[in-house]
């Protein structure tokens, strides 16, 4: 199979730098996967693994193994904004699960799936280390803390 995915020139240069940044080349796999995800609308496709394998001169299996192990890598497409609602203990005690359900309802999307307009993927996730500001959610890279359902809906409505 020929590889159809390619990183930007900048992205490829970044991966090459990461290969030399750490003592072992394998340490570049995680940063490389982050880069692919960033340039590929938030997920890592099978083609991009083939591409990385050539670029990094590492077997696909070794990249795939890392990809599958860590929860922050998405192996299927996600919405333009990835909304992760913490449902672990302190958030659960402060309405995190109700918040996740309300957001899914409001934006008409099932847990972990993409909304019809492609805007959101809303997922229930485990503790994000912001328990004093429960309930909270992470929207892409940003922590939104001390939420009410209304506040959270407002934040997401602003996102195009």
């Amino acid at each position: 199979m020929t590889s159809t995915f390619q990183l930007s020139e900048e992205g490829a240069a970044f991966v090459k730098r990461e290969l030399n940044r750490y003592e072992d080349r394998h340490s570049a796999i995680i940063p490389a996967l982050y880069r692919v995800q960033k340039e590929n609308n938030g997920w890592v496709s099978p083609e991009s693994v083939t591409y990385l394998s050539h670029l990094m001169d590492l077997p696909e299996s070794e990249i795939e193994e890392v990809l599958r192990f860590y929860t922050m890598f998405n192996t299927k497409p996600v919405g333009r904004h990835h909304v992760q609602v913490c449902c672990n203990i302190s958030c659960a005690m402060n309405g995190g699960r109700e918040l996740a359900d309300r957001l899914c309802q409001e934006f008409d999307v099932h847990d972990g799936e993409i909304s019809g307009d492609g805007r959101f993927t809303i997922s229930r996730v485990e503790c994000l280390g912001a328990c004093d500001k429960a309930p909270m959610m992470q929207v892409n890279d940003t922590f939104c803390e001390g939420l009410t359902e209304e506040k959270a809906i407002e934040i997401l409505r602003e996102m195009k």
Partner: peptide, 27 residues
Amino acid sequence: MDVYSGAGAYICGEETGMISSLEGLKG
């Protein structure tokens, strides 16, 4: 000194899991 970012795995807080992860393997 340098920084390294994990990618979402509680088990990497275990010191030998962290070492595996830093080595570019499953944690």
